[in-house]
Design a protein around this nucleic acid. Sequence first.
DNA 1: GCATGTATGTCGAAT
DNA 2: ATTCGACGTACATGC
Lengths: 231, 231
Amino acid sequence: MRVVFAECSVDYSGRLDAYLPKAPRLIMMKADGSVLIHSDGGSYKPLNWMSAPCTLTILDVTEEERDAGVSQIWLVANAKTNDALHIRIFTILDEMDCQLGQDPGLVKDGVEAHLQELLAEQVDLVGPGTRLVRREFPTAIGPVDLMVKDADGAHVAIEVKRRGEIDGVEQLTRYLELLNRDPLLAPVTGIFAAQEIKPQARVLAEDRGIRCLLLDYGAMKGTDNVEDRLF
Amino acid sequence: MRVVFAECSVDYSGRLDAYLPKAPRLIMMKADGSVLIHSDGGSYKPLNWMSAPCTLTILDVTEEERDAGVSQIWLVANAKTNDALHIRIFTILDEMDCQLGQDPGLVKDGVEAHLQELLAEQVDLVGPGTRLVRREFPTAIGPVDLMVKDADGAHVAIEVKRRGEIDGVEQLTRYLELLNRDPLLAPVTGIFAAQEIKPQARVLAEDRGIRCLLLDYGAMKGTDNVEDRLF
DNA sequence: GCATGTATGTCGAAT
DNA sequence: ATTCGACGTACATGC
């Protein structure tokens, strides 16, 4: 990886066009050819970048550009997608180079899957007398997170999300439409369960007769721990 | 901005827990306190990071950790969100420091907002005699990009996308369903307008009686410029 | 500040 | 290879 502090201007052309005026920035060139242009603030997202696969070519500097103070022009391009980054280097302030090698990678421990698991264990949160049929109940268009039966024995499909947005309601709607075609299951009602449900998603869900259920992850996890201690 | 090549291991704890085993990496510390950990590959997204606002504290290295080769421990934390990054530095391979100052920022061109704006100005592209009612026409489930009236005075809802895919058609369908319940508006027809429309999206749209309209951004921008020159 | 929609989203898994 | 859903999404914008 090569890292350069330089005064530069950058043009991106591809899915959109974007331009960075001349200013001092950090340019990171990774071993796979990708390039990142960072300023001294903002988030982890670079101001501009090219993702691998791409290749760096050093272009000729025209007389005119040299007079304007451009010392080098780097073209970083992806031949396949036609994306290209033109980096005009005025002054290189400092640079480093280092062989880092392959990274062992990030080990994650997520919350998302845990919610479904917890609700399957604490299915009475849906309503008294509710029984779990199965998790990841299969349908032709993908598995429903939870299939349960309510106290009256009627099927209820539950979509579990960390954050409940409109897409999730659409997903559950598709499942319900399909499930209700099966005479062995119908009528199947739906529950949209999430730690947080956006107002628009709630409106859409309730408009479609889908019940919304707010999940308290902390409390559910706490209940889970207590049970763990009992056994 | 300070940039360090170092052998390090990193622990993140916050919305999830994640761990990076010991390996050589790039650590970027920005002026606003944010920290990025990059490997020599992957995309522009760092392996791990902390966004501003956050503060870096240098922790004591325990005897045990020193024996394991840890020379420094950096704690990067956001007091408010309880997110924290523990960076254990084993060996610093190289480093640089540079004052970059405030960046003038990225200038973008060709995003959806611009398309919507252009179509609002050139609403006759929809058909002769079409008039703009308003942009961002509000509904309970979100704003419709453009609401227009055709030559016959009938309402037409337009969804503008850069790339027209299935979820865009779904979005417009939801709006149409809602809008058509309003007797003051109904009947409302739909137009799916995009620079590029995926075949599946086109099939779905037309199946639902939604007209597809391909937008030529270059031409629209050109027309815009010509008009600018006329006035 | 909250809520919502877009993104050069990225990323991974399943089809 | 493509599609789909999740993301520590980030980010701008309207309210």
